[in-house]
Design a protein around this nucleic acid. Structure first.
Lengths: 111, 111
DNA sequence: TTTGTTTATCGTATAAAAACGATAAATCAA
DNA sequence: TTGATTTATCGTTTTTATACGATAAACAAA
């Protein structure tokens, strides 16, 4: 059992869920806050701040990158990450759009 | 290993992540859409629409309820669910607030 | 070239989520 | 009371996520 039924839902539902998923861990919320606040964006800086091992931080960064929320460039041995605002703003817009369309039917609630 | 570090983050980060988590599955997005659209809000109606077994739908409903996004009243053998707009609107506001405060530091990006 | 620094990846272990059949509980209808 | 209907919960299995040590890779500096 436990066969993934994820792709039996609409593309919109899958996309919205994927966006929510990448922000569903406090470490990844915290990383986004560090990336916004700091000028540096270096991975080691994040490791200093978060209560997690370097390997774990790197894994979270990879997920944020795969989802498109951040982008990174390698600078020698260091790697610089920052928020991809184009993607981030589009995804937030979609997320808010979903919420707005829910709200349109607000009066129909039964309880 | 894999000891949960979740509660080593700030309460705000945990709350935002918890909200994102409950919407991180397409089934739960779909349920919210059904609850907004339909007048009935009965569990069986959701089972009809989603490609999931009744037990699974009931489980997803429980998670949405635990997070406060929906509320339910029992009507005889049936149970009626609907969106708790007071909670939903507050959580969306918090989520957007986080995004806005990220955006305030937009100019500081390095890549 | 050698050494040190930084980060990504591999392998692995544990925890949590997802899914469902079976069943219990609650109520309505006959 | 009996039977049908509806939903929640239990128990279990499978999958995915989380976490980290160890190590490889890539480069800077000596």
């Amino acid at each position: 059992m436990a066969i993934a039924k994820t792709n039996e839902f609409s593309q919109q539902e899958q996309d919205l869920a994927a966006f929510a998923k990448v922000l569903s861990h406090p470490a990844r919320i915290a990383i986004m806050k560090v990336l916004a606040k700091e000028n540096g964006c270096i991975c080691g800086r994040i490791v200093e701040i978060l209560p997690l091992a370097q390997a774990t931080v790197s894994q979270h960064l990879k997920e944020l990158k795969n989802a498109g929320l951040i982008k990174g460039t390698i600078e020698g041995p260091k790697s610089c990450y920052c928020i991809d605002w184009l993607v981030m703003e589009r995804l937030m817009k979609d997320f808010n759009g979903m919420f707005s369309s829910l709200q349109l039917q607000k009066e129909k609630s039964c309880c």
